[in-house]
Amino acid sequence: MRVIENNQELRRYQLYERGDLAGFVQYSMRGEELWLHYTQLKRRYKSEEIIEYLLLHILEDVRRRRLAIMPFCPAMRIFMLERPEYSCLVPELWQDRLLVRSTVPHLPMDRVRYTGSPKRRSTAKHHAEGTRAVVWSGLPAQTQPRTQSALCNGAPLPGI
């Protein structure tokens, strides 16, 4: 079951999927304008259907509340270009700047921030064979020279 909540304290529309916070759209208010900044989803909920559900809900909420929308969020801009019936929600002076079709076609999900790690291959096989880990210098970890002058952002490295 999907639920969308307007968390006014955190200034974001939050999407819950079966009770889990799947993602949100961050916004700020400027008078009667809702400024959308970015859309963020957990990687495991990456789907056009979920993004469309969230963005459509926001547009309908803005329309219902009789607000203007400033879609600085790239995902929302692309979404609005696909649905010109919502362009009237953007102030007329900003429509030429914010609702411009790109020469390269994109989907809204191409412009969403995703959190969570992508699946990675297991390194267990390499460790079982006894191979050594290689560090930034290209030398095996056991032969990495340690000096007192090693710095990280101007501070000594821990353990040196």
Rank of each mutant, 00 (worst) to 15 (best):
R97Q: 13
R113V: 08
S122F: 03
Q26S: 04
S117D: 13
E5A: 04
I58H: 12
R111G: 01
V135S: 01
I69A: 08
T147S: 09
L157F: 13
T143H: 08
Q14K: 05
C152H: 12
M76P: 01
Q144L: 15
E17R: 01
V3Q: 12
L55W: 08
C88N: 03
Y16F: 09
E82Q: 04
K42F: 06
P71G: 05
H126M: 02
R30L: 15
R120N: 11
A128G: 02
T115L: 07
H37R: 02
S117Y: 15
R64W: 05
R113Q: 11
D20P: 00
E129L: 15
R66K: 14
L10W: 09
T143R: 09
I78C: 05
W35P: 00
A68G: 05
C152M: 15
T123N: 02
I58R: 15
M29I: 14
W35K: 01
T103S: 04
V25D: 04
M29Q: 11
I50P: 00
L59D: 09
L81R: 06
Q40F: 05
R121S: 10
E32K: 12
P74I: 04
S28E: 14
L59M: 10
L89V: 05
E92A: 10
R66D: 14
L157V: 15
H37G: 02
S117W: 10
P74N: 11
T131P: 00
C73R: 09
Q144R: 11
R121G: 07
R132C: 14
V112H: 03
L107M: 09
N7A: 13
L139A: 05
L67G: 10
A128Q: 14
F24Y: 15
W94G: 00
